[in-house]
Each structure stands twice: as structure tokens, then as C-alpha cells.
Design a binder for these strands. Sequence first.
DNA 1: GCTTAAACAACAGACTATAATTAGCATTAT
DNA 2: ATAATGCTAATTATAGTCTGTTGTTTAAGC
Lengths: 71, 71
Amino acid sequence: MDSKQNILIKFGDRVREIRKEKGLSQEELAHKADLHRTYIGMIERAEKNITLINIEKIANALEVNIKELLE
Amino acid sequence: MDSKQNILIKFGDRVREIRKEKGLSQEELAHKADLHRTYIGMIERAEKNITLINIEKIANALEVNIKELLE
DNA sequence: GCTTAAACAACAGACTATAATTAGCATTAT
DNA sequence: ATAATGCTAATTATAGTCTGTTGTTTAAGC
């Protein structure tokens, strides 16, 4: 993951936006999603090409539909 | 990817459904998406936990919005 | 205002697990 | 018979985990 892809930037921004709306820290979100603290940061910064299963985990932890993370 | 996850099954089914609607073979879709023929098969059979960038490639090749692959 | 502390996030590096690519052959349609 | 798909196996690339450190933001105290 060198040059950041547009879709990853959009996704990461959306995660951060909703996470803050819900008043969660990266660490709290990570715990709810059963993912690592630093990994959430990497996703928000578009440094990793997230897989579908983890997309779903984050959507569940944020209590939103997956589709809301992709618009 | 041993035990197939529900979301991957749903995604794979949806890809296959739309691919057939468009009258494409796996090989033709693979070519349009710049992915390998057998990989498309694996996705349709829910054998791989696809990443967001490849989700987008397939959506573009099928000429649908990503969200349509997730409903 | 200006500290200080604490919580939060960015970043680096090393490691492990697995996604992604590919070839070859078997099977199932049409 | 041909085209399309399934399946196996092996390799390469990278997603995902984790520890530790550095930087930034926030809010309290004086």
C-alpha cells in the first residue's frame, strides 16, 4: 500500500467521521470490532486495503449498514 | 479461508447474479476487471476474503455501484 | 494567559496470516 | 466437441497483528 487509492481514502474518512459522531476513540472502536488499535488508524489513513470481513466488523461496531461506509 | 463467511457468500452470489445478467463469462469479467479467471471463480464461490480495491474493480467491470454488490 | 497530565492518534519496524496471482488438469455444462 | 467453470497446489505480495515510541490534542490546575 504505497500510493493511496481513492476508494480507501473515502472509506477511511467515512469510518473516522462516523466514529467521531459516535464519540468513540480508535481504541474503543478497535475493541468493539475485535481489531487492533493501530489497524483502525491505518484504515482511517488509507494505508491498508481492507478486506470485506473487516469492513463488516467495523460496520457492526459502528452500528451502521456496510453501505453507509461506502457513500 | 476455511469456513465460508456469510458476507462472502452473499457477495459472491451477487457478483455471479449480475455477471450472468450482463451475459459475461468469468473469463470475460476477469479480463474487464484486470483480475485472473480463477480468482473470479474463487470470489463467486466465497473462497476468498476480497479486498476493497478488488471489490471496486469488479463493480466497475460490472458497471454497477459498489453498494449494489452488497445488498 | 501558561504549564502539566492524560488521553488520543501517528508512525516505525518486525512478524504472521492470508489475499492475490498463476498454471494445469478435472468436471460440468451447452 | 467446445466452452465455461471447478478445483488443487505452489508462489508472491500484502493484509493484519503487535510492541514501542513519538507527537498532538484536550482539559484541568495554577
